[in-house]
Design a protein around this nucleic acid. Structure first.
Lengths: 187, 187
DNA sequence: TGCGGTATTCCACTATAATGGATTATTGTC
DNA sequence: GACAATAATCCATTATAGTGGAATACCGCA
């Protein structure tokens, strides 16, 4: 084993305790023996995928919940404010399109969301992102046009378009006035 | 085992082939024997978590990539439009606050995002969500006030507030005019 | 503090994960 | 089709995952 797997034992114990479950309770719920549960929690055994799956289902967790550093656990009482003028902006070369990156830096590559402002004639043309990526674009003002594989749909204010982003795709404003949208990208 | 674990073998094989790797290549990259790889791919063995972790790291995958039905893999060429009038709305009892649910149904409990419109005096008061939950609120128009553990911050247009949602928290409009925001909730 | 109930860990055992080497299957070239 | 190279599977073995029952530890109450 080259890269040691994350220690899942402490997390599993934490989640069990949070649900006020004994080892016996969880053993019943998951059909994994109490002994095995104890060994896993103490890091004395390395569960098989099937066993781990049973545990996550019984505890209502995702696998990612056991290993994920990610969903930013902010310190209690911390409200972090990213002021408008500190919000990263990307502007298209022709100046017709502005993307403000609303998502935090640590989400990059997993989940990103943007505030898009696009003047008439503006376009965002994207190559395929990683396998499984998808986008959700909600028009706040004005109309957008989404194209995926020569399929074109118009998104009017209040509507949301959901489409695969693991193929080339584009977002355009073919209307007569400026448009604004929220774009959520999941990788 | 109550709930059979998803079959990961076919997926692992697919990912290996997509990278033009032989079993021997992947064995080297992951330090898992060729035999074991073959058994896993054919569903003849149930890998331990440590083995599975090594494989995901060597292939550059997340665990979720092996089991996830989830990140909506839309059929190629499908652009699904959720029209404005079909977008679920939640209205507060006093009518001062409207939440339109922009996220897809299958994201519920994992990732949700909303278009919030709040009139002066409106408030959204929330109990603690599940451990690790956090929220990101971007003010599009008007000002919002976020309170977490008696800490209060104001969010002005274009700014984004990030705060833990696994403790009681609230969102208010104490201004004189209507406000609009995008709220992203990660669980 | 003592006691009872129960939560957790220990123990001996069985089943299987995981290995390295041998064998078989597959593929590409002539 | 024959042949060589290599990709994948088989095989026998060792280590450990996983079990049920027993023993120990822990906790709450009088």
């Amino acid at each position: 084993m080259t890269i040691p797997a994350p220690a899942i034992g402490p997390r599993l114990k934490e989640e069990r305790k949070a649900r006020a479950m004994t080892l016996t309770d969880l053993a019943s719920a998951s059909n994994v023996s109490r002994s095995m549960l104890s060994q896993i929690e103490r890091g004395e055994a390395n569960p098989t995928f099937a066993t781990l799956w049973s545990l996550t289902q019984a505890l209502g967790l995702k696998l990612e919940d056991l290993t994920h550093v990610g969903a930013p656990i902010l310190p209690i009482s911390a409200i972090k404010i990213a002021p408008a003028h500190f919000t990263p902006e990307i502007r298209s070369e022709d100046g017709l399109c502005t993307l403000r990156i609303l998502s935090p830096a640590e989400s990059v590559g997993a989940l990103e969301w943007y505030d898009i402002q696009m003047n008439p004639g503006g376009a965002l043309i994207s190559n395929a992102h990683r396998h499984g990526a998808c986008e959700h674009l909600t028009a706040l003002d004005g109309d957008f046009e989404i194209e995926v594989n020569q399929i074109v749909e118009t998104v009017s204010p209040g509507a949301t378009a959901r489409y695969p982003a693991d193929v080339p795709h584009s977002i355009r404003n073919r209307g007569a006035r400026a448009a604004r949208a929220v774009l959520v990208v999941r990788f």
